[in-house]
Design a protein around this nucleic acid. Structure first.
Lengths: 267, 267
DNA sequence: TACATGTGTCTTTTGTAAGAGACAATCCAG
DNA sequence: CTGGATTGTCTCTTACAAAAGACACATGTA
């Protein structure tokens, strides 16, 4: 009786792991996508657009958003038909900070560093296999807005990335790094082998410096923070002008390593 | 054919609105309960206990927790078989702060106030009909630990509560305040009519002071922060010793009202 | 050794939530 | 005014997730 539609009507063929865009998704997954999408857009968005954005039926998103708004995880924004993150998420986030010594002290330390040195300073961690700027403190230089807390950048683009991957198996690293990740913003393509070598070097040295990788004007100094188990749990890093003198760079690295070591002493 | 079991086997008769504890819950709701429960316990918890805590089947919680951990909303804590909030929630929380002028500036202001006055200062809001301490800054006095960000206290116990409810219909207020809420910690019972009168007075005066309500040693000074629409969107408050002189109290109130007014000027 | 208690992974069953689609109500452009 | 696009609500169906429960493996303790 029905027209034999079924499996056509799929605009995008999602790759294997990254959401098949399968017909019937679990509600929870839809919610997770909604949150990720909002995190990516960084602003309130209409429910219709949201449905488009996460590639889900409107009716479904309406129901889910209603639940989430009722729960306080989302809030209706200004004019009344847009949604964004809600207070509850903020409260849960603060709970996380409170329960997490490293994050709490790391934020503090990063703020200190940028105040003392005047440079942009960041606390970075692996977040489900992705490099994440967990906290950043602007520094006093005029340019360099950044402020991109929660921003996710390909691991090979950063000094911190090299430290964070120290101690991982080659296979695991290959798994975390896609082909695209190896292409830095200026178009050059890193070799996976070079990158893996970098990781080993950085791990052994206990710090890492990269020059002009993310942009042509800065270099990035990073030092590892270790967990009790001796694994690299986070890094703190400084973003300085690429023409900073050898000497000053050296001093900053020493400072950075000292502070990182202090953070490593977890209660 | 089936044995007529069904509706027995329910240990706790949940009241109407607060979760019937119905047999087959939506996954999303289960997740919301999990988050609330973690927020309440304020620490990592074993999955078994979590299942008990939210009154859900173990198997369900195992699957949900796995999803949430994979998504980064939860993290396995220390020893490996406990869960607590995860980095993602922190990131989303920071997104919320960034997208929310009032919260961002309010936090700042509260920090300033407690530094300048040496007293504990708090930023408070209504969070789905409950009074919530959104941010608090300890002050320099020896006692008074507090630090209870995200804590939810019955509205009638606080000065801020009286301000936050200004402009609401009587019916709405009655709806938000349960019988238990009217019993303050020392056992006294407030009269609903008195409370509603307090609200009107506070709204008219543009500030509110309560003495010895939450505990016998402090009084609470609060001033309202208005939204563009003229509604009370938040309050800032100071917690001072109950024997603070009339004069000093007056000065603090003036200061508080001034700062609150400044916060009200939303871009 | 047996006996309870907690943990993590399966499989099976079935109640229900996700999805498609229809609807009225706005809103805006031409 | 008309036609198209968007918004929010509702209904009905069935694919599928939540729940029950069995299992295997640790613990601890009488």
């Amino acid at each position: 009786m029905q027209d034999g539609n079924a499996l056509a009507v799929r605009p995008d063929a999602g790759p294997d792991e990254d959401r098949i865009a399968g017909s019937r998704e679990k509600g929870l997954n839809r919610v997770l996508h909604i949150l990720e999408f909002l995190h990516a857009t960084q602003r309130a968005i209409g429910i219709g657009d949201l449905a488009k954005g996460v590639n889900a039926p409107r009716s479904t998103i309406y129901t889910l958003v209603r639940s989430l708004v009722d729960a306080g995880l989302l809030e209706m924004a200004g004019d009344g038909n847009r949604v964004y993150f809600g207070k509850k998420l903020y409260l849960y986030g603060m709970d996380y900070v409170r329960g997490n010594d490293l994050l709490r002290r790391g934020r503090q330390e990063v703020d200190n560093l940028s105040r003392e040195t005047g440079e942009t300073s960041e606390l970075c961690m692996l977040q489900s296999g992705r490099y994440t700027i967990v906290h950043s403190s602007p520094g006093t230089r005029p340019f360099r807005i950044s402020s991109a807390t929660g921003l996710q950048i390909p691991l090979p683009w950063t000094a911190s990335g090299r430290l964070l991957l120290a101690g991982f198996e080659r296979a695991v690293i290959e798994d975390m790094v896609s082909e695209d990740d190896l292409v830095v913003p200026d178009g050059r393509r890193l070799l996976l082998d070079d990158f893996i070598e970098d990781i080993a070097t950085a791990g052994a040295a206990g710090y890492c410096v990269t020059s002009g990788l993310v942009d042509a004007y800065t270099k990035c100094l990073a030092a590892p923070v270790f967990s009790a188990a001796g694994k690299v749990e986070a890094t703190i890093c400084l973003v300085v002008p690429i023409d900073t003198s050898e000497e000053k760079t050296g001093n900053l690295i020493t400072l950075l390593r000292e502070r990182a070591a202090r953070l490593s002493i977890t209660g």
